[in-house]
Amino acid sequence: MDRLNTIQKTVVAIILATMAIVVIVPILFFLNVAFSSDVEMSKFPKSIIPSFTLTVKVVPADNGEYEIFYDNGEGYRSILTTKNPIKLENHFRRQYNVSVPGEKLLRDFSQTRINGPMEFKYQKDILYNFKQFFAIVNNALPALKNSIIVSLYTIMISLTIGSLAGYAMARYKFKFKETINVSMLIVRMFPTVGISIPMAILLIKFGLFDTMLGLALLYSVPNIALTAWITSSIFVGINPELEEASMVFGANRFQTFMHITLPLALPALAASSMYAFLTAWNDTISALILTNENQTLALVVYKAIGTTSSGIQYAAAGSVVLIIPALVFTFIIRKYVNQMWGGVEL
């Protein structure tokens, strides 16, 4: 029933191949930029594979100086003429991402006095852009810390309040249950931007403006409802008889919840944590509104991009750091996303 003829198969293959290319190629180029040195940025056209080494041509010049040539795709161009070791070292570091002491460079170049113009290959410092990002961009390192902190806060707040609510929704019948259900839905989908600015004023009153806790409170607004929803569906799936057995054998409701129910609901808790994490980690606009000095990493990267394109490779490197946890967690919870959204009706 499922067989396709050859033409259909080819079409399908082309479509899927296109998709794969469209996804992978930009990412490869982006990674390349993240590892590129300054001179490589001026190369045009850009290559897709990053180079891990640097090749320069050195020509001996008068006065004991050396002329450095670099090929950025259009032939060797003269870049610099000097014999100053400090100047050399800085040049190589800033332009080529190569960290070699100036004296060593001079010693290497002295060979050209004997052999004539030579090519020299140096290892690029792969992590240079990353180090630069955290050095140049204000607050980058503290921002990283902040992002971690605010994510943790968000997880803690959302999980505690949310799972209690989820348990209530799962196990009890009570008046207004439907109303609460609907209102949680509304809150979950409410555009955060609608409350961000009023939130700022509220936080100022509480003295929580520009703090990670304050930011976490905002992030928790949709996440508590989301956690409640995720956990309630898992709790419903846990046989109440398991809890009743625990109480028959002497535990009270709270102990039962902690020792029996919660461990069984671990997948739901894990999924809720990751959602909470991603909300906090990825957000930029709320951070923009609610913080001043204590920025999150996403916000810092946003600000680093500026309007000019110079130094973009450092921002790219910073983005790579930003991306990694997000990538990892998204893939872990995607199985759960599948279950949740398949067949969900409003």
Binding site: F44, N282, A298, V301, I305, A316, V320, L322
Partner: peptide, 18 residues
Amino acid sequence: AITPTAVAILWKTGLIKE
């Protein structure tokens, strides 16, 4: 799975003149 801010940078690196 990529943070939206990072996506913007990803594409910016592509869209600049060089």
